[in-house]
Design a binder for these strands. Structure first.
Lengths: 254, 254
DNA sequence: CTTTCTTTATGTTAATCGTACACATAGAGA
DNA sequence: TCTCTATGTGTACGATTAACATAAAGAAAG
């Protein structure tokens, strides 16, 4: 059985078990080395990358399907995961061109609906806890700097762009970091995250005042030592206050 | 041909021409007599109401489909219309119960997919310019106070609730009113809109200061006369500044 | 051991914003 | 002409923000 045959049989299974005409794409954000990262998959036997995505089983809620995709690609569960946009244009991307870049076998074209609308989700995950895992259609899975994306299939470049825009807006009235930072972190490290998402530097003195004023952080008795200069305190998120801030939408606007 | 036959044939046409398994529901907000209103349809020959909704033609974008539904029900075009949530639970509502309340003919059940996910849109329209128009499935179309909704089919009660929540959030960083108010209006009238959406009274003196400070309003030389007491000035929205405020997301937070 | 250098932690100040409240004004009705 | 009340404008005060200053910590260099 050739790869081409496998592919067609795979899509036939999907067509049988899943809701037809609707897919979902997950923009999975991580944070590492002062940079905001996105998790991407490389389409098998090509140099083309795409977002982790999938289809919705007939008895499964769309949100659950997104959680499943996230789990399958990262090994993580129960994370911050949110709908952000439905991509529903009739011609979201150049189909011929995309199939060619994917090296899609041509008998394929008959066995698939003419268009697919896609629900976009974005997730915030702890980079250090993720085990990037490729799927049936891909031969690599890895992180990319949001500023240095590779060649992307479909309309995934736009999807990432819209996700980032949404994330930036969200920053104005909800805290982030709970799922992006490791369990213990310093305030300057958290500031790097905010700077990476907003794409501009922040005043460290005002940031410190602001973020501690939200009472979503608990200062530990430990410090991060070993580096030159004054050792910063380590912090943890105060889960209950963090949740309250998420729901109430305290203005942050760093 | 009985109504029952017509209904089945109607849904067969839909199944043929439209994307299967995906629908859309529009929460159309209007404003009248100090109250926020929602446009609802009454299901033919029942006392059950529902949101205007529809399906997506195979060659039509989802956003365009929402615009079409809005136009068909209100006669209005090119309005503020926005996605707000995908309702994708596998069992969004009690199907048996709903069909019974709809007096749905039972041969129907075989000719329709097991589940439908629905994209929620909300629109802001000028109450005075709307001609509520019933569709094939309904025998009445009218406005309801968001606080006094009738018996609703499907999960439309929840959909309205989520739409209202989204609208309230949006109020914190975007102006509203351009499509909800008539062309000329007074500041106290605009204040009534904000109060209706937020569900709480505002201080008229501070509201006046705040709203004029955004420079999205142009004061006309006319006043609204005929009523008792001091005649208030009439205002218009300054379109270019209004658009800028929409895009930039100036904090408003009344 | 002392000095230097740099990052972290905390503090200060002036400007701005939000909230609460006071008051003069206009216009219809008594 | 007086009254009543919604409207338009203004003021005062506390809270918040943005910009800038300084002290403390800790490793490296002399």
């Amino acid at each position: 059985m050739t790869y081409s045959d496998k592919l067609i049989s795979y899509y036939k299974t999907i067509a049988n078990d899943c809701v037809l005409g609707v897919s979902l794409d997950c923009v999975i954000f991580g944070f590492h080395d002062t940079r905001l990262k996105v998790l991407l998959l490389r389409w098998k036997d090509t140099n083309e990358w795409c977002l982790p995505g999938g289809f919705i089983y007939k008895t499964e809620s769309v949100d659950d399907a997104a959680g499943r995709v996230l789990y399958e690609r990262t090994g993580l569960n129960k994370l911050f995961l949110q709908q952000f946009h439905l991509f529903g244009e009739a011609n979201r991307y150049d189909r011929e061109d995309t199939w060619q870049r994917q090296k899609m076998p041509m008998p394929f074209s008959g066995s698939w609906p003419d268009r697919t609308i896609s629900m976009g989700y974005y997730a915030l995950v702890d980079y250090t806890k993720v085990t990037p895992t490729a799927d049936f259609l891909s031969d690599a899975c890895g992180w990319f700097d949001v500023g240095e994306l590779p060649s992307l299939l479909y309309d995934h470049c736009r999807i990432i762009h819209v996700a980032l825009q949404t994330l930036r807006l969200q920053l104005n009235w909800q805290p982030i970091g709970l799922n992006l930072m490791p369990e213990k972190f310093t305030i300057p490290e958290l500031q790097r995250l905010y700077e990476a998402v907003l794409g501009r530097p922040l005043d460290s003195r005002n940031f410190h005042k602001k973020i501690t004023g939200l009472s979503i952080l608990t200062r530990l008795d430990e410090r991060r030592t070993g580096r030159a200069h004054k050792s910063p305190y380590l912090y943890q998120f105060d889960l209950s206050n963090y949740q309250r801030a998420l729901v109430n939408g305290n203005l942050i606007f760093v």
